[in-house]
Simulated assay, not measured.
Amino acid sequence: MEIGFIGLRAMGTAIARNLVKAGNDVRGWNRTPVAPETVPGMTLIDNPAEAFDSDVVFTMLSDDAVIRDVILRPALLARARPGLIHVVTSTISVAFAQKLERLHEAAGLQYVSAPVLGRPNVAAIGQLNMLVGGKPEVIAIIEPLLAVLSKKVWNLGEIPAQANAAKLAANMMIAMAIEAMAEAVVLTESVGLDRARFFELILGTLFAGRTYESYSAQITEGAFEPGFKAKLGLKDLRLATQAGGATGRSLPMLDAVQQRLGEAVLAGLGEKDWSIMAHVTLRGGGLSPAPVTVAGTH
């Protein structure tokens, strides 16, 4: 299958490599130049319009604004191959996903939202969880492609934005779990209980699961190297807040974790893993806006 790929940073590169390994003809473009050996077997192209002259195009771009700049402002939809399927794997706002669906329909193109759960190392071994929303007949066409990228494809409905809402909700819940663990450590360390012993208890009883296992280890070790950068996590929490605002409901826990992560980013920690918000809580807030070394500080 002829595949265009736009967005070759860590996650995009990992996904593109697996598409090439599966025998697809992949042509890739990135906003900043990448070396030809970045994805062995992939053809680098000169501009994103060439990617839209394909059967399927994947985009892994950082946010709504970048998709507008790269895809919409140059009117790439109007220049695309007829019948093309556009798979947007980025974490974008619900409202923007709804707009993209309308724009693709008007252009006679197919649109699928497919944000992912997993980090680049997970993508590299084809073990992502892919959250997919779109027309069933269109998803069926690209399912063999999604299968080589993921351990499971979660088909969440015919409305693309359903997948985007699910991704934002999942990230919101991860942030809440990080903050919950940090606040629990504040309580337990106040009487001298070692955080490693406390997390052993929690993981062995009430809160077993990958999120708690992964982030409790980072909190225990005071090691917050990315994974998932705090500045990107804050972007996702802001998108979740926008989606929540559209419901007319109050989401106080979301407000709290967005504020906490915002404090970390404001303090110059936006390049750290987003679990750095736990460090803010453990410090009692009030971080100065300067880089902070946190490993081994507990």
Rank of each mutant, 00 (worst) to 15 (best):
L251F: 14
L251H: 15
P252Y: 11
P252M: 10
P252I: 11
M253L: 15
M253V: 12
M253F: 15
M253K: 12
L254H: 11
D255E: 12
D255W: 13
D255G: 07
D255F: 05
A256I: 09
A256S: 13
V257D: 00
V257C: 09
V257I: 15
V257H: 02
Q258N: 08
R260M: 05
R260F: 02
R260W: 02
L261C: 02
G262M: 06
G262E: 14
E263Q: 06
A264R: 02
V265T: 03
L266I: 13
A267S: 06
A267M: 07
G268P: 00
G268F: 07
L269H: 00
G270H: 07
G270L: 12
G270D: 07
G270K: 13
G270A: 09
E271C: 03
E271V: 04
K272I: 02
K272Q: 15
D273Y: 07
W274R: 02
W274I: 04
W274S: 05
S275M: 06
S275P: 04
M277T: 05
M277A: 05
M277C: 03
M277D: 03
A278P: 03
A278S: 14
H279A: 15
H279C: 05
H279E: 12
H279G: 01
H279W: 08
V280C: 09
V280T: 06
V280D: 01
T281A: 08
T281Q: 06
L282P: 05
L282G: 05
R283H: 13
R283S: 14
G284E: 06
G284S: 09
G285L: 11
G286I: 10
S288P: 06
S288T: 14
P289Y: 08
P289W: 05
A290M: 10
A290F: 08
A290N: 08
A290W: 09
P291L: 07
V292L: 09
V292M: 07
